[in-house]
Amino acid sequence: MKKPVSVFMMDVTDSSRNWKEVSSYLETVEAYIKHWTKGLPNVHIKHRLGDEIVCIFDHYATAYTIAFYINQIWRFSDQPPYFGMSFGNVEEDISDIDIDKWNHPLMKHARLANERIKQSSNRTPIIFFPDSDAMSIPSVEMSNLLLEYQGKLINEQTKLQRLISGLFSVLDEQKMIANLLGKSPSTISSHYKKGNCEIILKTFNTLQRTLNHQEETQSGTYPSNIMNELENTIKNHLKQNLKIITN
């Protein structure tokens, strides 16, 4: 029986500059991912080589959902993470996968996507390189164009706009964010609009729905409720620990 999975390989820009601090922070991020995905039956997470995190998850949209929220809370604004990402179906029992030895094409695709970002001049935060059966080439190209556009908008945000975007992705309440930051609601609204926060969040929702639809089409599974539960877990964790975003 085919099982839908997603994979990402995450690296950090210019991590050699302060590698001890980055490596320590990645251990914290690894713990966040484990907490967020504790409701999924099969999750493999490995922090390795100092600045790399490799993950395998159930379902097509999981890797992208996790990567999006990591980007929203990331501490080092001048050293952003980037994610080579793949998804598709596997025959193996996911619970038995050894992440260090698993040489499935999806792992190779994720690494190739990661290398493509590394060699790019504009450093799009995420690139998809799925299995050819999981998504058609035109759909991959369209999704990667959306990812490039989303990444450009994020990279152009000011520090305050990025903070507001991260808080909106979790709280979605202007007055609460204004009180939290000690600013007026009109100021929050202005930075929300100037930072293109609504478009960034809409793009996230559109890509997540696209991946869910692809999984339904290719695998016959219906992951929408599972993705909603995953997001609720992430949001609840961050609501209870808002310093993760504001520090």
Rank of each mutant, 00 (worst) to 15 (best):
M1C: 07
P4I: 05
P4N: 10
V5H: 09
V5I: 10
V7Y: 10
F8I: 06
F8W: 03
D11I: 12
V12A: 06
D14L: 14
S16H: 12
N18G: 08
W19H: 12
W19D: 07
K20Q: 13
S23T: 09
S24W: 13
T28L: 05
E30A: 04
A31Y: 02
I33F: 00
H35M: 05
H35I: 09
W36Q: 01
T37V: 00
K38E: 03
L40V: 00
P41Y: 00
N42T: 02
H44W: 03
G50S: 08
G50M: 02
G50Y: 07
G50W: 03
E52V: 13
I53P: 01
V54F: 11
C55V: 03
C55T: 03
D58Y: 00
Y64W: 05
N71L: 14
I73F: 13
W74V: 10
S77A: 10
Q79F: 11
P80E: 07
P81G: 05
Y82P: 03
G84R: 00
M85P: 03
F87R: 07
N89P: 00
V90W: 03
I94A: 05
S95K: 11
D98K: 00
D98G: 04
D98Y: 02
D100C: 04
W102S: 04
H104P: 05
K108E: 15
H109P: 05
L112G: 04
N114G: 08
E115R: 01
E115F: 09
R116E: 15
I117V: 13
K118L: 10
S120H: 08
S120E: 13
S121A: 12
S121K: 13
R123P: 01
R123Y: 12
R123A: 09
I126V: 14
I127G: 02
F128D: 11
P130H: 09
D131F: 14
S132P: 04
D133C: 07
I137P: 12
S139H: 12
V140F: 12
V140L: 10
V140A: 10
L146T: 09
E148Q: 13
E148L: 06
E148M: 08
Y149K: 13
K152F: 07
L153V: 06
L153M: 13
N155K: 15
K159N: 08
I164W: 08
S165Y: 15
S169I: 11
L171M: 14
D172W: 15
E173T: 04
Q174P: 02
M176A: 14
M176S: 11
A178E: 01
N179P: 02
L180C: 06
G182V: 04
K183W: 05
K183F: 11
P185R: 15
P185S: 08
P185I: 09
P185D: 01
S186Y: 06
T187H: 12
I188F: 01
S189T: 06
H191D: 00
H191S: 01
Y192I: 02
K193V: 11
N196Y: 05
E198P: 00
I199G: 01
I200P: 08
I200S: 03
K202C: 01
F204S: 02
F204W: 01
T206Q: 07
T206N: 10
R209D: 08
E215Q: 14
T217S: 10
T217E: 02
Y222C: 03
N225W: 09
N225L: 06
E229A: 02
E229D: 15
E231M: 10
I234M: 08
I234W: 02
H237P: 02
H237M: 06
L238W: 05
K239S: 12
N241E: 08
